[in-house]
Design a protein around this nucleic acid. Sequence first.
DNA 1: TTTT
DNA 2: TTTT
Lengths: 116, 116, 116, 116
Amino acid sequence: MSTLKNHVQLIGNVGQDPQITNLESGKKVARFSLANNEFYKNEKGEKIQNTEWHTIVAWGKNAEIIEKYAGKGKEIGVAGKLKSRSYEDKDGVKRYVTEVEANEILLLGVKNGGSQ
Amino acid sequence: MSTLKNHVQLIGNVGQDPQITNLESGKKVARFSLANNEFYKNEKGEKIQNTEWHTIVAWGKNAEIIEKYAGKGKEIGVAGKLKSRSYEDKDGVKRYVTEVEANEILLLGVKNGGSQ
Amino acid sequence: MSTLKNHVQLIGNVGQDPQITNLESGKKVARFSLANNEFYKNEKGEKIQNTEWHTIVAWGKNAEIIEKYAGKGKEIGVAGKLKSRSYEDKDGVKRYVTEVEANEILLLGVKNGGSQ
Amino acid sequence: MSTLKNHVQLIGNVGQDPQITNLESGKKVARFSLANNEFYKNEKGEKIQNTEWHTIVAWGKNAEIIEKYAGKGKEIGVAGKLKSRSYEDKDGVKRYVTEVEANEILLLGVKNGGSQ
DNA sequence: TTTT
DNA sequence: TTTT
């Protein structure tokens, strides 16, 4: 789907080592959380942190880049599409999840840029 | 939060008339679904439609624009931030929702441009 | 080059019928101006228009879409890369031009969306 | 002007120390070149570098961030608008320039995140 | 759960 | 040069 119709871009830190799944086809899937951190001072001058968490899914070549280079704590950029899907949890409750499907990964804070 | 760290842009059609809430402060909130439609032909040459649904929240001035001009079916553009939050549903089940908080609304397919 | 490193998105009106060039390879190139219009009222309450013009270049399939559907005045969306190049004009003066190379075209104000 | 109608985002390296101008109003303006580097291997397996240069202009608070933190070689992110203007050079030749007017600056490759 |  |  067109970038003009559905486009997400995020820059943040990987929360935990990505979970990598090897599909039967030989393709990989990476799933991980990405944190957007924001810092500000409140009226008392105390430093406050606000963190927004996102769920990212990457397939194929992007999953491989994630597996090799984007461990816990790494700063990366992600561009992709916003997607939602539903599933039943173990208690039979219908759950909805919204994920960012990554089309591009950019490694940051890496000597030499880390562009893909 | 910076557009570089968290940015979403969508162009699509409003699913149902937006739900408008008038806060005690006098501020409005609009909440609605936006559809990204994609059409393609399958191997049999049949036209297939695939729709991705997004939940949009708009505050203040943007909520007013939505209320006035963005009824069911209207084509609009939305730019904003990706945000997640949790709540307990009526059965006490913890639910997570991910929404796009609109910073900008652009009315499309409108004679007269409709730019804000 | 990655969308994260170089990304431009524009929505506006085509200024003149695009200039289409047929390359020897059979490929097409479309070149045209796109207008971003902005309206505001000055301190006297007069309606003022400010227009920003952009030069767009589209290749191949996108050039064909432009040729067929994006004549003078049409409202379209463009996503692509920012590129600069230099050439010598007829008086031997070195000139620099900056263009948006379109990766995607979205036809707007068209019944049925006009998505590519 | 709306992000939906005119939006540019770049991540790259500052080419030279930015040129800072102090306006009579006390406001600062920063002007600098930003490089998008791309590396690939040609058919002989040699590493080739392709660089796209962009001209960035930042005003006020963003100019101050640039002056303090974004010296030659620094990796930064820029989000803003695409703008063109014309002027006469010293030989009376009319020149056109296209610049990215930065609305946001994000310092990258910096211990401590560098978010604004 | 990251990062500062 | 578009559009409103």
